[in-house]
């Protein structure tokens, strides 16, 4: 695992310990970002902040994020978040600020990663092929991925499918994030040991499963054409606007030997069993 090394020698405030900012430069997936955050926020951030990130203070910076701790008239903390000098927003809690920083860092890398196409999706490996489940936040990807792993699939990601120029899918090696504490605990129990080992190798795309939750339904999908399969991936492709040609060419190559399915799903366990049986 990689460790982000904060450079606490670089401070830009002398207003008190809780007001001090630590600057830590990291790079991940070829993207170099500089983070300047209040020292007390460091403990709230995951390490690494982006899967695969390493301490790196060399070369040009692709993006900078700064969090400045201020206080309201009433004395409540206000975390002002600035990207490349432009205010993105204000968080009122330490936890909220940490989540915003992590989200920004991961999205920035997903947007700017050169030569790669990040698709918002859960991913598992099954018989040496990637099963990709595209979907945005709160679409249930993490739950589906965990059920697929319980059913015997290999964990790859609960957040992004990372496609290289050959159309292979790389692991996005982080602990899945679930909203319920009990689910999070179960995820840690299931994957904690796996994640402490090396990530799996990139594999070709096997299938794309597009679904939405419908109570009491059962996963009985219809086969998609290659165009509709590609459209399902593009609908969740982070750099699509910035790099449309690269995104489309990369994903078109990826789906060339893959299948796509679409349909409503019921409970995650039912989906997982049926999906793997289908494949």
């Amino acid at each position: 695992m990689f460790i982000v090394s904060p450079n606490t020698d670089v401070c830009d405030s002398n207003l008190g310990a809780e007001m001090l900012n630590s600057v830590f430069p990291v790079s991940a997936w070829g993207v170099r970002i500089d983070l300047s955050v209040p020292t007390l926020l460091l403990a709230e951030l995951p390490a690494p902040i982006v899967p695969g990130a390493e301490f790196d203070n060399r070369g040009p910076v692709d993006a900078e994020l700064s969090v400045q701790l201020n206080h309201s008239v009433e004395g409540d903390p206000l975390y002002e978040i600035t990207e490349n000098g432009k205010i993105l927003g204000i968080e009122t809690s330490l936890r909220g600020a940490a989540e915003a920083v992590e989200s920004w860092a991961q999205l920035t890398v997903a947007t700017l990663a050169k030569g790669l196409v990040f698709v918002h999706a859960g991913v598992v490996g099954w018989r040496n092929r990637a099963v990709v489940i595209p979907g945005r936040s709160l679409s249930g990807k993490s739950t589906l991925v965990l059920e697929l792993v319980r059913a015997g699939a290999d964990y790859y990601s609960d957040e992004y499918a990372v496609f290289d120029s050959e159309g292979r899918v790389h692991p996005y090696w982080r602990l899945p994030k679930l909203r319920a504490a009990s689910d999070q605990k179960a995820a840690s129990h299931l994957l904690g040991g796996i994640l402490s080992g090396p990530p799996p190798i990139p594999i070709p795309l096997g299938c794309v499963l597009i679904s939405r939750y419908e109570a009491e339904s059962s996963w009985q999908p219809r086969r998609l054409t290659s165009g509709k399969t590609l459209l399902g991936l593009l609908d969740n492709t982070v750099p699509l606007r910035g790099r449309p040609e690269q995104s489309i060419k990369t994903l078109a190559k990826a789906i060339a030997n893959a299948r796509g399915f679409e349909g409503p799903r019921g409970e995650a366990a039912d989906f997982a069993q049926r999906a793997l049986a289908l494949l």
Partner: peptide
């Protein structure tokens, strides 16, 4: 007709 994947409910996380 390619409806998107947003707005799903019922499962947590992700």
């Amino acid at each position: 007709d390619q409806g998107g994947n947003q707005g799903n409910q019922g499962n947590q996380g992700g």
